[in-house]
C-alpha cells in the first residue's frame, strides 16, 4: 500500500486502528508516504504516532466501549460486552463507518442499529463456508462460554435443520465434513487429504554479511502490546520496560567494547538507532535483538527491511544485516518525552 502511495497511485487514505509509523518495516519510508497523501483520515481510540499525520482524526472506540464477538486463534467465538460508554466525542467504529457511507450517499448495507444485527449478517454470510457461524447465537456463546466454528444451523451434507449444533472444538477429526472435501476426508483439499509442504530455504533479502555482518532481529517485550498505542500510556507497564534496549551476547559486547547498560549504535542500510546495551548470554553472539513497540528515533522499525514473505506477505522483521558500535553517550532524543507523557 505504501509503495502505491509513493508511486502516486493512492492519494487518499482512511485507516482504523493503524499505526504503521511504529509497526511497519523501514518506517522512515512510511512516514514520508503519510506526508505524501493528499488526504488522510485516521479512526483511532488514542492519538497515536500515525494519527498525528492525519488531516482529520475521528475518535473511535476500545472494545470495552462496544459490543460484539471476537474469534480467537483456536476458532472459539467469544462475546465482548460493553462496560463503559465512549468518552467525549468518541463513537463506536461501526457507527463511524455507517455515517461515512451515509455521507457518501451509499447507505446500502450500512443500516445496522446494533452490533447483534451485524453478527446476524455474519451468520448468514458464512453459512456453507469453512468457518460456518450459522448455528452460533449471542445466547449460545454466553451459555457455553464461547462456541467453536464451524457451528451449523443446517446439516451441511443434507440441508436438514440442526436444533443445537455443539460447534467444533477440534478440527480435522476423522469423518468430519468441510465444503472443500465434501465428505471425502477431513482436510481442506478436494480429496480430503492433508499435504506436507516442502519449504525451500531462501536467503533473506538483506542477509547479514560484508559491511553489515550482524543479524538484527526484532520482536516484543511482555509489557507492551503491538505499537504501544495503548500500553505506552499505562504507567506500570511503561515502568516495567521503560525504553528499548539492544540485547547482545557478551562476546559481541566485548568485541565492540561495551558493558551492560552502556550506549550502543546499531546501523542498517536504512537507519541507525542508539540505545542502551543489554548484555545476556541468551542470544546468539552474531545477532542483536531490539523490541519494536516504540516510536520516533527509538523505533526499531527504522532499521528493518520492507521485504515480504512471498506467500504470507509477512515482512522480514526477523532478519536483516546490521553493524553495531559503541556510542559516545546518550543521544539527544533519549531525554525527549513522548506526547502522551
Amino acid at each position: 500500500m505504501f509503495r502505491k502511495i509513493d508511486a502516486g497511485e493512492i492519494k487518499g487514505l482512511i485507516s482504523i486502528c493503524f499505526n504503521p509509523k511504529v509497526s511497519l518495516p523501514d518506517n522512515n519510508f512510511v512516514t514520508r508516504c503519510l506526508d505524501k497523501l493528499e488526504f488522510y483520515t485516521a479512526i483511532d481510540f488514542f492519538l497515536n504516532d500515525t494519527a498525528r499525520h492525519a488531516d482529520i482524526v475521528l475518535p473511535g472506540s476500545l472494545h470495552e466501549e462496544d459490543e460484539g464477538t471476537v474469534t480467537q486463534v483456536e476458532g472459539r467465538v467469544i462475546k465482548v460486552n460493553k462496560a463503559v460508554d465512549c468518552p467525549g466525542e468518541a463513537r463506536q467504529d461501526w457507527r463511524i463507518i455507517q455515517d461515512l457511507a451515509r455521507a457518501l450517499d451509499r447507505p446500502h448495507g450500512f443500516r445496522f442499529e446494533e452490533p447483534r444485527q451485524i453478527f446476524e449478517e455474519l451468520r448468514v454470510a458464512s453459512k456453507g463456508g469453512v468457518a460456518d457461524y450459522s448455528g452460533i447465537t449471542y445466547e449460545k456463546i454466553e451459555r457455553e462460554m464461547g462456541v467453536f466454528w464451524p457451528c451449523y444451523a443446517e446439516d451441511p451434507r443434507t440441508g436438514e435443520p440442526i436444533a443445537d449444533h455443539p460447534g467444533t472444538p477440534r478440527l480435522f477429526e476423522p469423518g468430519s465434513y468441510n465444503p472443500i472435501a465434501r465428505g471425502s476426508g477431513p482436510f481442506y483439499f478436494p480429496d480430503g487429504r492433508a499435504r506436507f509442504n516442502v519449504a525451500d530455504y531462501r536467503v533473506p533479502v538483506d542477509d547479514a554479511g560484508g559491511e553489515y555482518p550482524i543479524f538484527l532481529t526484532t520482536g516484543r517485550v511482555v509489557s507492551q502490546f503491538l505499537s504501544g498505542t495503548q500500553t505506552r500510556r499505562i504507567g506500570p507497564l511503561v515502568h516495567q520496560y521503560p525504553e528499548p534496549r539492544i540485547e547482545m551476547h557478551p562476546r559481541l559486547a566485548e568485541k565492540i567494547g561495551v558493558a551492560d547498560r552502556e550506549w550502543v549504535t546499531a546501523e542498517t542500510r536504512r537507519g541507525t538507532i542508539t540505545l542502551r546495551a543489554m548484555v545476556v548470554t541468551t542470544i546468539r553472539p552474531d545477532t542483536i535483538f531490539i523490541p519494536y513497540h516504540w516510536t520516533g528515533r527509538k523505533s526499531a522499525n527504522q532499521l528493518t527491511v520492507a521485504a515480504q514473505d512471498p506467500i504470507s506477505k509477512i515482512p522480514q522483521y526477523k532478519v536483516c544485516g546490521c553493524r553495531v558500535r559503541k556510542a559516545d553517550g546518550p543521544p539527544a532524543y533519549d531525554a525527549v518525552l513522548e506526547p502522551q507523557q
Partner: peptide, 9 residues
C-alpha cells in the same frame, strides 16, 4: 559448553 561456541563472530 557454551551453546553458541560454534557461532563465528
Amino acid at each position: 559448553p557454551d551453546p553458541f561456541d560454534e557461532v563465528e563472530l
